[in-house]
């Protein structure tokens, strides 16, 4: 069994079986973390380039650890956003990396579709580590892995995504993945941050957090960015917290075995209060650990077999 694809660009493209395979493969990788030597020789001699056009701490660290634990050679290239417009084009950068015989390119970019453009042009496997407000497939996979680990199954699971859905690639990838795996997803947030026609993705929409939280098995709250206030998307952070913040009072309205998730980095006291973030329902730190296992599984599954062909 293997992923019959060159690239991992988004969960929109994957079917339930492929998602299942990735989640299943991540399990033995997680087991590796209990060993004193956490490294295996699987990708020895392979080269992975982490091409980051956007600052990222956790995703980059997670990928780098995953790559190193698989014994791949890792090269990090960080391109400041300012030079995206002026500097070398993405395709030229991609061609340069390809000429260095990279087997994988992990790309994070501030613009939707950048990984797709790269994947069309180069033979290396391209893994999307977040493109603009489009997709963040590895994050959603680690989230689903965490939910499955905690809840046993994704089928019928009630997941509530809270916050800035409009600008969230994490939300989009989770919606694709979770709906394909049979979970019931509700998105909650101010009307200005719910994108047009999102119901067509198979989710319910609510503007009122307290009307929906009692049914949730998983509460997934997203980072709210201050800049959005300037774009007239909500009046103030204070009002946002009042309407959509997850705190102890709201936790009491939820199921006893609810789990609380966040993709990080958190704005403590804004979308989530510290006591909830650090409390017994929170699985936020486990998400981070699981992220490494998921990324190892993806690298392993994309490394297999047949010679790679350009997909275009």
């Amino acid at each position: 069994m293997r992923l019959k694809r060159k690239d991992l660009l988004g969960l929109e493209d994957l079917d339930a079986k492929e998602i299942e395979l990735i989640l299943k493969t991540a399990k033995p990788f997680k087991e590796l973390f209990t060993r004193s030597i956490k490294k295996v020789p699987t990708l020895r001699g392979k080269t992975v380039v982490n091409l980051f056009y956007e600052p990222s701490t956790r995703t980059k660290a997670s990928f780098e650890l995953a790559e190193k634990r698989l014994s791949a050679d890792v090269l990090n290239i960080s391109v400041p956003t300012s030079s995206v417009v002026k500097g070398e084009t993405l395709i030229d950068t991609g061609k340069t990396i390809e000429a260095m015989m990279a087997d994988f390119v992990v790309i994070r970019h501030s613009m939707a579709g950048a990984p797709h453009l790269l994947a069309k042009e180069i033979k290396s496997s391209v893994i999307n580590a977040g493109d603009g407000t489009h997709e963040h497939p590895t994050q959603a996979l680690l989230d689903m892995f965490t939910m499955k680990e905690k809840k046993g199954t994704l089928k019928g699971l009630r997941v509530i995504l809270i916050g800035d859905i409009l600008h969230s690639r994490v939300a989009r990838s989770n919606i694709w993945g979770l709906t394909k795996m049979g979970a019931k997803v509700t998105v909650v947030g101010p009307a200005t941050l719910i994108p047009s026609k999102i119901e067509k993705m198979g989710v319910d929409v609510s503007y009122h957090l307290e009307e929906v939280i009692s049914k949730a098995d998983v509460i997934y709250t997203l980072r709210i960015q201050k800049e959005r206030q300037k774009q007239h998307l909500f009046p103030s952070l204070r009002e946002y917290t009042e309407l959509y913040g997850i705190n102890t009072a709201r936790l009491k309205m939820m199921k006893k075995n609810v789990i609380i998730m966040h993709p990080g980095p958190m704005n403590r006291g804004i979308e989530i209060s510290s006591d909830v973030a650090d409390g017994p329902h929170s699985v936020i730190t486990e998400q981070i650990t699981n992220g490494i296992a998921i990324r190892m599984a993806i690298l392993y599954l994309l490394s297999g077999g047949e010679t790679r062909e350009l997909t275009r």
């Binding site: 929109e12 939707a112 579709g113 493109d131 603009g132 407000t133 489009h134 997709e135 690639r169 989009r172 994108p195 047009s196 026609k197 999102i198 067509k200 993705m201």
Partner: peptide, 11 residues
């Protein structure tokens, strides 16, 4: 619309 929503491109 729906396509801008799934593509994460500003509409």
């Amino acid at each position: 619309g729906y396509n801008s929503t799934i593509l994460g491109l500003r509409g």
